[in-house]
Design a protein around this nucleic acid. Sequence first.
DNA 1: ATATTGTTGACTAGCTTAGTCGGTTATTAG
DNA 2: CTAATAACCGACTAAGCTAGTCAACAATAT
Lengths: 153, 153
Amino acid sequence: MKLSTKGRYAITAMIELALRHKQGPVTLADISVEQSISVSYLEQLFAQLRKKGLVTGMRGPGGGYCLRRPASEINLAEILQAVDESVRRMNEPAVAERPKSLRIWDKLNNQFFDYLADISLSDVIKGHQDEEVRSRLDLPKPTFGVGIQRPAA
Amino acid sequence: MKLSTKGRYAITAMIELALRHKQGPVTLADISVEQSISVSYLEQLFAQLRKKGLVTGMRGPGGGYCLRRPASEINLAEILQAVDESVRRMNEPAVAERPKSLRIWDKLNNQFFDYLADISLSDVIKGHQDEEVRSRLDLPKPTFGVGIQRPAA
DNA sequence: ATATTGTTGACTAGCTTAGTCGGTTATTAG
DNA sequence: CTAATAACCGACTAAGCTAGTCAACAATAT
């Protein structure tokens, strides 16, 4: 389980796609200037995102990348997982085999994973918009932080 | 902000110290066999933990490492921070300067940091012990997961 | 004294990150 | 049709990080 700059690139790029989804496909060149990453490196990342079915690429002029599913049905855990194999949930039987302190770590790890899996792209964006509105209105912040709502159930 | 294997080593080692704190100082050799990491690598990590005042080393026979503060006053964020500079909270003015998708990322990052900063070593251990008791008694699991209690405020 | 354990520093193989380069399709605007 | 656009694809690479080794030295309990 790693939360690296690579993962950050993947997530910020996906946020970009979600934000601009009304304007049609987003080109890697656009993301490249916005986030100052090289197009070639983005190509590597998007190859993996595409392989996992998170985005679709459209070639030719006017082409670019789109989210394959609606933003509300894509969570942060699967984005990280797409670009980094080490991001995963450990199943209980495997955890039980390990020495005590590693077992504790595994559970912590799974909890992080669940935490991220509960956050959809639309949550992240929605939270951001809410925050902008709130700062203009000078309202108090929500208890659990900006942009993240834990499911009711 | 990174959550790497290095950070995992640091946290699991600190958990080990907390678990065995009644038996006096814990040697790196002990942790080494428990977690199958080399003593020399542990030395590097503990040098940083010591520099940040999280542990104290005691030399000579019967020596080893102890937590410098009680487990309830050490949180996961500062452990990670000790061994990895990139783990930190971004201050608001700096965040405001960045492009939109990065700004969203920064907030997510800070939220994650706060999440980790809310979890103390004793929380982690307590949760683990609770879990063992609970599994023996066959009680339902708590809503928010094992080992983590969000502060009342 | 001597064994034990921490402390410090130099060094390293291998992996990951964050790219570059050069090309090949597919698609569309003109 | 053709030229431009942009996604695809694979090989390569410099720099940095991870996870270690090794050697020497310092403090301390017995």
